[in-house]
Amino acid sequence: MLDQICQLARNAGSCIMKFYNNQKLVNISYKSDNTPITNADYEANNIIKNGLLLITPDIPIISEEESHNFINNRHWNNYWLIDPLDGTKEFLKKNGEFTVNISLIKNGVPILGVIYAPFFNTLYSSFHQNAWKENNLGIKEKINVAQADVPLLVTSRSHPDKELKNYLEKIKNYKLKKLGSSLKFCLIAEGTAQIYPRFGNTHIWDTAAGHAIIIAAGGEVKTWSGKDLNYSLSSRYSFVNASFYASA
């Protein structure tokens, strides 16, 4: 099934790149929180959703691009989480730092994760305790987190916040890289980066695929109080995550 999900992500990515390479095709609107959304988001969403319904017709789907009544979903133990175009701001800035995110949640834990970066033609995937990276040459290899004497911290390119500034002031030795979308999780999973501190708001579809890949590669994703970031809908009050950090 993982291979089928990877192909779905690639199909959605190919669709997104048609818009990326011809901006005249892009129609932009704005959500209630003033974040942009485009027809590329919607078309990628349809590709993924229709594909998942064929592969696993009995598993429900939660997507960033659709309205969901949280109360009605709270009894779901197993479900798909998708973010068809993570990093819409980066997509519009044309810096390439956007991804397709698909994850499978089982009893509150992301057990399968796929992240495809179509601009770089690079795909990250995981199932249980194994994680892989397939580069633009089609070479696929297992990946693992790695420590470093001077850790590389990855932070959001489009979401600066005061708490992050305070956090960085307390660390003496580190290197810093700003990066869009869930690529931050991927750099930790492959051993390039070590820490992704996040204080601002995220939603479960922003983090689940990256979370799955990081834990499969030997890392962790925890809230600042030390608890695992959890996707159990029955123990939540909304789709919004607590602040967290991902680390090697």
Rank of each mutant, 00 (worst) to 15 (best):
I5D: 09
L8M: 03
L8D: 00
C15Q: 12
C15Y: 04
F19W: 00
Y20A: 04
K24G: 04
V26Q: 04
N27A: 06
S29N: 12
K31I: 05
P36F: 02
A40S: 01
E43K: 11
N46A: 10
I47C: 01
K49Y: 05
L54D: 11
P57K: 09
I59Y: 03
P60Q: 07
I61P: 02
E64H: 13
E65S: 06
N73E: 09
N73Q: 12
R74Q: 15
W80K: 03
I82H: 03
I82Y: 08
D86I: 08
K89G: 05
K89F: 03
L92P: 03
K93E: 14
K94A: 12
N95W: 13
G96N: 12
E97W: 13
E97G: 02
F98Q: 03
V100E: 07
V100S: 07
V100R: 05
L104S: 02
K106L: 01
V109C: 11
V109A: 07
I111D: 02
L112Q: 13
V114F: 10
V114N: 09
Y116C: 00
Y116G: 01
F119S: 11
F119H: 14
F120C: 03
N121S: 13
N121A: 14
L123K: 01
N130M: 08
N130H: 13
A131E: 00
A131M: 07
W132E: 08
N135Q: 08
G138N: 07
G138C: 04
G138Q: 09
V145Q: 03
L153V: 02
L153Q: 02
S158Y: 15
H159K: 13
P160L: 06
P160H: 06
K162C: 09
N166R: 12
E169R: 13
I171V: 15
K172T: 13
K172E: 14
K172H: 14
K175D: 15
K177L: 15
G180H: 11
S181E: 10
S182Q: 04
K184S: 11
K184T: 09
K184W: 07
F185L: 05
A189G: 10
G191S: 10
A193F: 07
I195V: 14
I195S: 01
I195A: 00
Y196R: 01
Y196W: 15
R198F: 13
N201E: 12
T202M: 05
T202Y: 04
W205V: 07
A208Q: 10
A209N: 02
I213K: 02
A217K: 07
G219D: 06
V221Q: 09
K222Y: 07
D228P: 07
L229F: 04
Y231W: 09
Y231K: 03
L233I: 01
S235P: 03
Y237V: 10
A242N: 12
F244Y: 15
Y245A: 07
S247L: 10
S247V: 11
S247T: 15
